[in-house]
Design a protein around this nucleic acid. Structure first.
Lengths: 233, 233
DNA sequence: CAGTGGTCTAGACCACGGT
DNA sequence: CCGTGGTCTAGACCACTGG
């Protein structure tokens, strides 16, 4: 009974990875060419190509025309941070999500914001303060600025029951963004909303979002004391 | 003069992306089949397949056999955190890197560590304290535990001039890991090494690393006050 | 059962970049 | 120049899954 399935790109990928892990091909070593590997594995070159391309995307190997394929020496590890909507993130830990709008006003962009995200000085922005709760305990304090020029319909939106993030995701999907993570000390406002003591260390994530080169929103999310963000690779 | 190049998968990918951004195909919409797109773009189905596969990997579209391809509704944004070696990270900001070994001892694994990374109680581990400086200013304090069973040769290693991370990368490449980010208050030790005031908020990254199911190392890296970690997507 | 994506093939041409 | 990876093609078969 031949259980031999045809050699797929995953087989090639895994076998190459195994040889690298087992130091059959040590760091910096030159791998056989795609053609040679295709012959060895008894498959088409395109199959080998796809396998190696995936490993290259993961940073496991470096590929260069003419020079060939080498085992990466100092691989830059890439961890994928999954950024989900708060509601989803909270419901994933089996907690009840609750949202509250704290404050909403239309103002001219403060100069720090204008320079932060690249706005005209004095452009009108919508400024929001929101709270996200998990099982009625403070989870995240959100301070957000939305560029009204970029999404004029925002002035009609109702943020009293749904967070601006969910609204924006529906209006301006697939934007690109820059994220900054840091640790900050709780000021009076944060301490109050997150029920921490003033000065307590809090985890903060800031995100600037653009859509087709145009700044859309800047958000500063501060999490409850003890919050930890995890990921794997 | 026809400047028409042959339609490549990038052309297809970008055009499909454009139509999604322009709401020609709104969220949840069903895209044409690969065959239809191939006909429209005048290329092979494999080319369309590769283009759509990339968009699917980015979370822009959802693909299912038989049902077809749809524009993702609530895309989970994926930010790639690039985890580089400290030396590299510091040199990238044009600062001079300096490393110092603070303390090194072999001990039985404390129980919290054993349970944290899945070790036998009492297994021998190498415990290290290190400092990383940028332009002679404290940049990161590193506290690390290495499972000696996983890398016996570690007891011979010399960490007085090179950090354990660089050594481990050379010995145990391409491992998988779990990362946790958080904000902590500086204790006396951290305050001393990072020249911060006690209680100051500090950004901390913890990482557990395995190699082929076996726990290798756990490291707690605490950064200087004001440190910010950035990424894009 | 039949439609749609998933993958493989064998061959081809191209583009980059050492020599 | 010319070897190596990058990509495309036209066709084929497979695998999952909705109806």
């Amino acid at each position: 009974m031949q259980e031999q399935k045809r050699t797929g790109f995953q087989d090639v990928r895994d076998e190459v990875l195994r040889r690298i892990e087992d130091r059959i091909w040590p760091q910096g070593a030159l791998l056989p060419t795609e053609l040679e590997l295709a012959t060895e594995f008894g498959c088409a070159r395109a199959t080998v190509n796809r396998a190696l391309r995936e490993l290259a995307e993961r940073g496991i190997i470096d590929r260069k025309r003419k020079s060939g394929t080498r085992v990466a020496v100092a691989p830059v590890k890439q961890a994928k941070l999954e950024i989900a909507v708060m509601r989803q993130q909270i419901e994933e830990i089996n907690a009840t999500y609750r949202y509250a709008l704290v404050k909403q006003q239309q103002i001219p962009a403060p100069s720090w914001l204008a320079s932060q995200i690249g706005l005209q000085a004095g452009a009108q922005v919508l400024h929001l303060h929101c709270m996200h709760y998990a099982d009625n305990r403070p989870f995240q304090f959100e301070e957000r600025w939305i560029n009204i020029d970029a999404v004029p319909q925002v002035v009609e939106a109702d943020f009293s029951h749904t967070g601006p993030n969910e609204w924006l995701l529906a209006e301006v999907p697939f934007s690109n963004a820059e994220i900054t993570l840091s640790a900050v000390a709780a000021n009076a406002q944060l301490a109050e909303f997150l029920t921490s003591s003033p000065g307590a260390p809090l985890f903060q994530m800031e995100r600037t979002t653009w859509f087709q080169q145009q700044p859309v929103t800047f958000v500063r999310m501060t999490f409850h004391p003890g919050y930890r963000m995890s990921t794997q690779y």
